[in-house]
């Protein structure tokens, strides 16, 4: 005779019936998760995926947006844009503007950060200069453009102080350098603030150890400071390169891409195709090409971030 063990039934099961199966529980759990993710996914879909897909779609059609009869044209728009000398001029200008700006941002940002990080400066002075140096970053592009247009006008204060009558923004020979300078002025505080935070995070022990080993200030800079800052510097360089290559407002409000085409950037080139020519197909094509260039930088940035992790 065998004994059977009876377990008392779960009172909840008696009242509500049997528990849902494991599969149902998993489904419900997944449903909950997606429910919470839904607003974000929806926003991403509506604000990012749909517009990007639409713009890519437009770049393969003609007469988009303004006419109801648009047709698939294959890569014709890409051939038109890529064979337009204006596009390559804009690409060259963008490259010059971005590379010089980013390099100068790094040098200036690092210099000011190291000055502010110096133990020779008292805390109140540091706070004062930090606030002073960060000012350019607080202005919007429109304010910066108006400010520098006034400063650099032929009758402006810069010419008055230099006792010259140089057309800084209106001269085809100087305009690209001038807008690059304005962009450098507007953007270095981002580097300065980030690098200052990085400098403050470098353990003092490393510098002391290097000093004991006989390293001078220059050697400590290259062998302690820079290696410690390298991850931040690489991130900053890539982000700044992406942002600067897309700069529009500053260029548009100071020179409008002129004189002639000397400050034409990919952003102003695309804007003109869309809102001056009303050729949204070609504008979409130029935008997709800019997207591809930005994607290269974005991929590099993500890979760098992953490597850091």
């Amino acid at each position: 005779m065998s004994l059977r063990t009876f377990t008392a039934p779960d009172p909840e099961t008696l009242v509500k019936g049997s528990r849902p199966s494991t599969k149902r529980r998993q489904l419900r759990r997944a449903g909950e998760s997606y429910g919470f993710l839904a607003p974000t996914l929806l926003l991403l879909l509506v604000l990012m995926i749909v517009p990007i897909v639409m713009v890519i779609g437009y770049s393969f059609q003609d007469n988009v947006i303004l006419k109801s009869s648009s047709e698939f044209t294959g890569i014709a728009n890409y051939v038109t844009v890529l064979t337009d000398p204006g596009f390559w001029k804009a690409t060259g200008n963008t490259l010059y503007f971005s590379v010089i700006s980013v390099a100068a941002h790094l040098v200036l940002g690092l210099t000011f950060a190291m000055l502010l990080n110096s133990r020779l400066i008292s805390a109140p002075s540091r706070a004062f200069f930090r606030a002073l140096y960060v000012l350019p970053w607080l202005f919007t592009a429109a304010v910066i453009a108006v400010l520098w247009r006034m400063l650099l006008s032929p009758n402006g204060i810069v010419n008055f102080m230099l006792d010259t009558d140089v057309e800084w923004l209106a001269s085809p020979q100087l305009a690209l350098g001038t807008v690059t300078f304005i962009n450098i002025w507007a953007g270095y505080p981002f580097f300065m603030v980030s690098l200052l935070a990085g400098l403050q995070g470098i353990p003092q022990d490393l510098h002391e150890a290097a000093s004991i080993d006989g390293a001078g200030p220059v050697q400590r800079f290259w062998n302690v400071t820079i290696p410690q800052l390298r991850p931040i510097i690489v991130s900053l360089l890539l982000l700044d390169l992406i942002w600067t290559s897309q700069q529009f407002a500053l260029i548009w409000l100071t020179t409008g891409g002129g004189p002639i085409d000397v400050t034409e950037m990919l952003s102003t080139y695309t804007y003109k195709l869309a809102f001056a020519n009303y050729d949204f197909s070609l504008a979409a094509t130029a935008a997709v090409l800019v997207l591809l260039l930005s994607m290269v930088l974005a991929v590099l940035y993500v890979r760098h971030q992953k490597a850091r992790d």
Partner: peptide, 20 residues
């Protein structure tokens, strides 16, 4: 509590759709 959370999630999602 789980149902309340699920309900809140769905309501938020629905509200987003309506808002958009």
């Amino acid at each position: 509590r789980n149902r309340a959370v699920l309900f809140t999630g769905l309501v938020t999602a629905a509200a987003s759709v309506v808002a958009l």
